[in-house]
């Protein structure tokens, strides 16, 4: 089933047929652990995996695009305003609207979802990569050039490593943003953790709402934490500099 074909939500919760199950489930208590257990393999786990896929693809593609754009804007600063404005506009369009506006172009598909998600990463990643590169102190750049590093060597061995903390900071924001917005993709493709949330909203089934919502928050926090760790490993010098 696709989200757009769902019936409108009634203001008052419909009393749904929760089928067989514990009294907790039948009474629609706030949280029923047994429901989570019996629906983990069939509903929640697949949704979680899809959600991770949606996120990873969007961030990887978004990073690749932003990286190229940022390098170009670093080299030719005239490129920055147009890229920034377009990325800013994309970032400002509410997610639900952007998903829907892509439907006539790329259909009710994962492609549409990914395009929208990617477009939300660009502004953040582009500005952070560019800012990171520009914040490399002029004397360090000068020293690199003076020792005979080529422009390309300076970029890869000096400027990008030094921009890493800012870049990872951007990645953290991008990842968390995408994890959040990917739930909204359920309005055009029935994938990811948005699916159980949407199902829960339809029949006001509390356990499903809370379980799926909590999984989304957990995923966002986990991804954020993982990136913090990654940054610690990749930038040992930054720790000493701060202390």
């Amino acid at each position: 089933m696709s989200g757009v074909l769902l019936a409108p939500l009634a203001a008052a919760p419909v009393i749904p047929d929760f089928g067989r199950g514990s009294t907790c489930i039948r009474d629609n208590k706030l949280f029923c652990w047994d429901w989570v257990q019996s629906n983990w393999g069939g509903t929640l786990r697949p949704a979680l995996i899809q959600h991770i896929e949606l996120t990873l693809i969007a961030v990887v593609v978004g990073f690749a695009i932003s990286f190229v754009l940022a390098l170009a804007a670093y080299r030719w600063s005239r490129l920055e305003p147009p890229v920034g404005i377009v990325a800013g506009i994309l970032y400002t369009i509410p997610s639900l609207a952007l998903f829907q506006l892509l439907v006539p172009v790329t259909g009710l598909s994962r492609t549409s979802a990914e395009i929208a998600l990617v477009s939300y990463t660009i502004l953040i990643l582009f500005s952070n990569i560019l800012e990171g590169l520009r914040n490399v102190p002029a004397d360090v750049r000068d020293a690199a050039e003076g020792m005979g590093l080529t422009r390309w060597q300076t970029l890869w061995r000096v400027e990008l490593p030094m921009a890493l903390p800012t870049i990872v900071a951007g990645l953290r924001i991008a990842v968390v943003t995408v994890v959040s917005l990917a739930t909204v993709a359920v309005f055009i493709v029935n994938e990811g953790l948005g699916a159980p949330i949407y199902a829960g909203l339809q029949n006001a089934f509390k356990t499903e709402l809370i379980a799926a919502g909590a999984l989304t928050v957990a995923l966002a926090l986990f991804a954020d934490g993982a990136l913090v760790l990654l940054q610690r490993v990749l930038t040992p010098w930054a720790r000493t500099a701060r202390s």
């Binding site: 829960g200 709402l209 909590a214 989304t216 928050v217 966002a220």
Partner: peptide, 23 residues
């Protein structure tokens, strides 16, 4: 603000619905 950013919109709404009902 980091925590705020990590709170997925739809998840927040779904918690709200679960606890307070639709409204």
């Amino acid at each position: 603000s980091n925590v705020g950013r990590a709170l997925p919109t739809l998840a927040l709404i779904s918690f709200g619905v679960a606890i307070l009902g639709i409204g």
